[in-house]
Write a protein that binds this DNA or RNA. Structure first.
Lengths: 195, 195, 195, 195
DNA sequence: ATATAACCGAGACGGTACGTCCCGTCTTAGC
DNA sequence: GCTAAGACGGGACGTACCGTCTCGGTTATAT
């Protein structure tokens, strides 16, 4: 993420970096995204404000760095041989990520910010855990020519309904990953299923 | 938004209300959601700050009131006899709304805010132009028992992919409403189409 | 010092103004001029920082307003019939002001700042307790045509040696106001004394 | 300022020292005393901040070292046989120093700082170009027993009026060194003049 | 008619985060 | 052991907006 540095000079404190990332993680859970301030992060991390501004530009950038790794882990499901089982497992992971996890809360906040902040939108475009994980899950379940749609559209078809359901504030109990999987496979896997 | 006032006294100034709603509409286009402030709205509208706080609680509430009517209009497509044509027309309207219109920009901003602000989430739950318009379009295209899914799931299936595509910052040129319509009808209209 | 205000709006809080002036007076004694900060003044006075900036521009301006009245009082000696006695009394007051008093400490700090801050210099030029008080004392002791020098030069002659002595950090015990008075009167009062 | 270093090791860089003194001289003229910062000096001199702190304690100390030599030179007037001429020449040099020269500007800034910074006051007490030069000029003009006053008082009498006039921001055109000289000699040289 | 009550604008209030700057210290690598 | 480079925690700067609080004035209705 960060190069060592030019030549001379004191090296960047890895301790400070870790403290910041931990602090922002804690604070976003405790207070919610909008109540997290750079001042608050600095104080919680025991770090000067200048140090924050030296290495990050915005709250969003810090939060993204703090949650990206967790996000990828949570969305990386172990492979199943049965395509439907694999897709359903992925959808369950996706639902859990978006509704229950700290990293998912951070992701939703960042995606919200991206709707009215071009810089955040750009950040997310370069680090898109949902799109990437969905593509991986589909590739695993319906490899190669078994996919009747281009991958981007396929990911939107898979992820979109869940994504809309949750972001628009609907209750999550009604989400049935098996049903969603069936629907998806019927559309996206037409070739292999012989539709 | 608020109507009654005890008994006597000066009535609410409709002129002030209209000036505020216009001002917030202009400002959110000019500056973007996050740069709009209550102070700025008051100054632009030629209204005192106290008046804002008297009738609205938050920036989000004003913006919702200012954009809700436009949103409903833009998402209300004229009926077509052919189900597929009707759905496709709705999807085109949805895409235009989310990507191009002022009301859609406001909606995206509010939905973003709702991800980390429970009050805004509550507001949106009581005024959900996407869900309602999608339900209306589906009802028109696949009325009564021709729908193989419960309506909420059907709306998510119809709206979700577009919604995810746009909110996650993908280029909109690749969106093909006819293809999306086909997919939707094949899934949601299984009964009428005989699958 | 400050007009009421345009027309509408909440009037300026006299309580806040007084609290600021007291706070700055206290702080400059407790901490010394350079350790007084606008932040510190605001906190001590229980006033917001914005309120300070609304009514004053700089630390110097606040301090001047806080100490000007005291300065004038301390340098306004009761009249004596004997010219030499009056001048000597004035010199004693001047020495006490410059070395011992809070207002004098503030004055010295401001005059120091004026040496490298044109804005402070301008402030002091419009509010010059030393020059004015010295002129008054001379006028009282050697009225009208009994003064052999133009008044500005006479004030410099009277005040200058004491001023230099103290500002350049010499011990004040060696200052003899009677001797200085004699010297001054021999020069400035040549006409009346018949030289 | 500091010379010795244990035994071995790299010796102090004379080049760095000179660069610092030049830099501070330039900067105090360009920006004024209060806008000069140690950071700025280091950057201008191409020297690390640590090096500054190693050899000097404060901005004032650097500035004093940078300007002391110039100050002494500017206040050291060539001798005249006539006492009045010598004193007048000294006063002209003093006026030029305090109002026009870079070293004089530095001196005024330091003296201002000394009014509220005991450390700077101590520095100046150990390096008092005004007092010393004035004493030298008086000694040259009124040597030995021709002086009716103790030397410290005599210097205050000579320097004080000019000093007050300039530091209190009065226009310098009105200063007449010949008149000031006459007054001084009438008082301080009473014995020789036979008053 | 005239009180009463709720509205209106203007704008000051205490509070707090912003992003920047400099402080004095510390930690590197290089000569 | 000095040097340049530059990151560190700390803290004040001046600005902006928050939500609240007076002000003086302006309408309507209810007496």
């Amino acid at each position: 993420m960060v190069e060592p540095h030019g030549k001379g000079g004191r090296p960047r404190s890895e301790q400070a970096r870790a403290a910041v990332l931990h602090a922002v993680d804690d604070l976003v859970v405790e207070l919610g995204y909008s109540a997290v301030t750079l001042k608050g992060i600095a104080e919680r991390a025991g770090v000067s404000r200048q140090t924050l501004y030296r290495w990050w530009s915005t709250k969003a950038e810090i939060l993204l760095e703090a949650s990206a790794i967790d996000a990828r882990q949570e969305l990386d499901v172990p492979p199943h041989d049965d395509p439907a089982t694999h897709i359903a497992a992925y959808l369950d992971a996706l639902i859990a990520f978006l509704t229950g996890s700290a990293a998912g809360t951070a992701y939703r906040a960042l995606l919200g910010e991206a709707q009215h902040d071009a810089a955040v939108a750009e950040l997310l475009r370069n680090s898109d855990p949902l799109g990437e994980s969905a593509a991986a899950a589909i590739e695993r379940a319906l490899p190669g020519d078994a996919l009747a749609l281009p991958m981007p559209q396929a990911t939107a078809l898979l992820v979109g309904p869940v994504f809309f359901w949750i972001l628009s504030g609907r209750a999550t109990e009604a989400l049935d990953s098996n049903q969603l999987t069936d629907e998806f496979i019927r559309l996206a896997g037409v070739i292999s299923s012989g539709s």
